[in-house]
Nucleic acid binder design. Structure first.
Lengths: 195, 195
DNA sequence: GGCAGTAACTTACCACGAGTAACTTACCTC
DNA sequence: GAGGTAAGTTACTCGTGGTAAGTTACTGCC
């Protein structure tokens, strides 16, 4: 008698990693909206309800993808900033690391930034994280500045970086160039105000 | 015999305006994703296929909403900039007009910015429009600058404005304050480079 | 006033994808 | 090997985008 291809059973953590990998790939290829849960399931070699026992909903699966990338982003940028000795270098290196990281994980972030409709909430948290981080950097530089002003500046920088990153992706401008353009405006502006 | 409430028939242009108004309202309240075409249709007092004869698809209806708002945005900001006499005032007034316009049309733009997944393409065109406009402003100020650098700076400003606008909406910072924060960094930076 | 012709509109349906309930089976433990 | 449990499947419901085919209010013309 033929033995059926005896379906392999797999532990929880392992499966979750497989599913996240497949989800990033499928969402990246077809876009979150156009991708179906069945397509993700098929990629893993499993049926749909399995996805739901692990992540609850399609939205939940997307959030999990984002969460995994989020930690990396903070790690990478703050490490880069910490390696610098002067404040100017901190801002410059952090920005450069941001551009380079996005590029190295292009599939993940392409989805998340362009298909941001449903990801909105989670993406906004990431931006808040980056804004706080930068406001902290600026505060160390200008300890007597109004905190709200610092937050305003941090928002300027975060918004500028996001837009420059997408521009880079379209036009092929190097991460060094993009960083320079940001520093042109921002750092010079800050220097004038620091007194 | 009872006359049935004899359903009023309405011309094409008039209906399209009604539908767009209803769509903006419904999308604004429930979010684009969660809103159904039937809900929009009901708001107008009409059945679903009517929407499809006018706009082709749900996506098409969203694009039409955006298109209507888009012309206004360019109009408002360029008019404001044109009313200024110095370059600094142009940037300042244009930025201020941008914030105030978004606020006055909050329902429309809340949807479009937060629910940007499907609107992505059209929104990107609006950003391109704003970027070109600003790059032009900057170019007039620094005629010998590298055009790519001007575009980079324009991206910085557009990204910064977008983020500041959302921050404002959350925190209640005034449009004048937000404008000042942007000018702090950007204008001072530009001044230093203008030579 | 009546009589086409047409544009506006409705009813009734299909397809597809998110999400679920109920059942089955591989693996581990004793 | 018996039995418990976590992993997985089959087979469904329901909501919503989209459409085909039929119906009715308005228009211009005689």
């Amino acid at each position: 008698m033929e033995t059926r291809p005896t379906r392999r059973r797999v532990g929880r953590a392992e499966r979750e990693r497989q599913i996240l990998d497949a989800a990033v790939a499928v969402f990246g290829e077809r876009g979150y909206q156009n991708a179906s849960m069945d397509q993700v399931a098929e990629r893993v070699g499993v049926t749909k309800p399995v996805l739901y026992t692990h992540f609850g909903s399609k939205h939940g699966l997307l959030l999990a993808c984002i969460a995994r990338a989020r930690a990396e982003l903070l790690e990478v940028t703050s490490t880069a900033a910490a390696a610098a000795s002067t404040p100017e270098e901190m801002l410059r290196r952090g920005t450069l690391a941001f551009f380079d990281y996005l590029e190295s994980r292009a599939p993940e972030w392409t989805v998340l930034y362009s298909e941001s409709a449903v990801a909105g909430e989670a993406l906004e948290e990431i931006r808040a994280q980056q804004t706080d981080f930068i406001a902290g950097l600026l505060g160390a530089q200008a300890p007597h500045a109004d905190p709200r002003r610092l937050t305003g500046w941090a928002n300027v920088i975060v918004g500028a970086c996001e837009r420059l990153a997408l521009w880079r992706a379209r036009t092929g401008v190097s991460s060094e160039q993009a960083t320079e353009y940001l520093m042109d405006l921002v750092w010079t502006g800050l220097a004038g105000l620091r007194s």
